[in-house]
Design a protein around this nucleic acid. Structure first.
Lengths: 250, 250
DNA sequence: CGGTTGATTGAGGCTGCTCAAAAGGTGTGG
DNA sequence: CCACACCTTTTGAGCAGCCTCAATCAACCG
């Protein structure tokens, strides 16, 4: 699976355009000035290796990071070793906010694959917001969308059984992947999560995730193998998950 | 329990000052102009009965509501009857955002007690933000805090067992109640949730909540009875819940 | 006084966890 | 090139946390 994970970040789709711009343009109209400002924000980008920590729980966030290629996640760690993934970051997603600059972060952000990130200082990011109301508005809407996803996660963890939970997570990721243009022609896409990662995101053990995956595969709903997700019957998957993409369409 | 629930909204502490101002002043400095603007926002307030719906899932949000007295909650409903509470609103909390005005809400907001709310039109709210950068900043920080609480809920539901979950929810509410000045001298306070409500917030059945409450009571940690929560051993309760109030202190 | 809602208790069962072990793949050092 | 460590996936057996179903009781209300 490392082979596909390593290849993931190099998929051509991720490089064609500015993923941040693509994502924000969906949320609200951006004029040429806004677009230019966003492009300038991404002047300094770097590649980081899989597993690298982008923001550390307990440390102040001194940079806003934009993920441009690869996959990352937010997670919270307990002292006793328990861990909960609280969000998946796909190309075009942001983390960090100028208003929280002085406060220690309450979660980690970690790259799951080799990833390309733009690192923008808090000050510069704030200046861009101040000078470009359109950009500020777009970021605000992005934050609202993030909140909606978080609410959906609460519902997922609180009300759904393991197979429904997994189905819902797959629906969410598939929907967002589609928006990123990272879905292949046959509807499959690379999402380099281990079964352990899925468990950490869904409040399940990897053993149980494995069994649920086998069940979903046996029912010809999805096939998750070697970091590639193939959805065989999107209609039944949505029904199983009670998935309503409205919350993702702000 | 209805007697205490009905009395809740009238507790004198809730009426002394502007709860919205108190809450936002904790998050950032507000000058006199900002304070005056906030006061003007609350010119039109009304009392609504317990159980009233403030915002309806699926309907656009046309007003920003500020809760000034009483308790409310956000919740999402499934078609099959399942329900998940995704947040508790205490005096000084807000719901609604101008940026989501045209979109249907993805959750309900409902008063759990008789409640006093200020109803501000989207346009007026937006105008206040535009004219008072300090207020806009404060609301932005309030939104970030709301996100932090939501992340804590994800962790709570994903990683903790029933007794830890309940303990953590009690810690969160107690901490926020303290900030509202609604905690009595002995550390107890009124929080008009039924055991069913607690279950709906924690992804548990009311039957199990009942058994867990008995356990917490037997261990002399907390006593929840008739809508009044008494914390007998905050230290052990925090330890049980793995509670770290840092996320509530933005 | 009947109806409704919430709290409580009991019995039984299922979902998902724990513990354990083995197989396959990958990277590393000798 | 092989031995070895490590990680992920897979499978099995047993268990326990939490649920379901059901019934009772208390409080409140029209």
């Amino acid at each position: 699976m490392n082979s596909s994970a390593a290849a993931f970040a190099e998929t051509p789709q991720g490089e064609i355009e500015n993923p941040l711009l693509r994502q924000l343009a969906v949320l609200c109209r951006l004029n040429e000035t806004d677009r230019a400002a966003l492009d300038r924000l991404l002047e300094h980008t770097e590649w980081i290796p899989a597993g690298a920590t982008i923001d550390r729980q307990g440390r102040p966030i001194r940079f806003v990071h934009a993920l441009l290629a690869g996959v990352a996640c937010r997670h919270k760690d307990f002292r006793d070793g328990r861990r909960q993934i609280i969000g998946i970051l796909l190309p075009g997603d942001l983390c960090g906010d100028p208003a929280t600059a002085s406060r220690p972060a309450d979660y980690h952000v970690r790259a799951l694959t080799r990833a390309r990130v733009a690192k923008v200082s808090i000050e510069r990011f704030q200046a861009t917001l101040d000078q470009n109301p359109g950009v500020a508005n777009a970021f605000h809407r992005a934050a609202l969308l993030e909140g909606a996803v978080l609410r959906a996660w609460v519902v997922n963890l609180g009300q759904r059984q393991a197979h429904e939970r997994l189905a819902h997570l797959f629906c969410e990721i598939a929907h967002r992947m589609l928006g990123c243009g990272l879905t292949l022609a046959d509807g499959s896409f690379q999402i380099p999560l281990t079964q352990r990662d899925l468990g950490t995101a869904l409040g399940l053990t990897s053993v149980h995730v494995n069994r649920v995956l086998q069940r979903l595969r046996a029912e010809a709903l999805v096939d998750f193998y070697d970091g590639v997700l193939r959805i065989h019957d999107a209609h039944r998957l949505w029904a199983l998950a009670n998935f309503d993409p409205a919350y993702l369409c702000h």
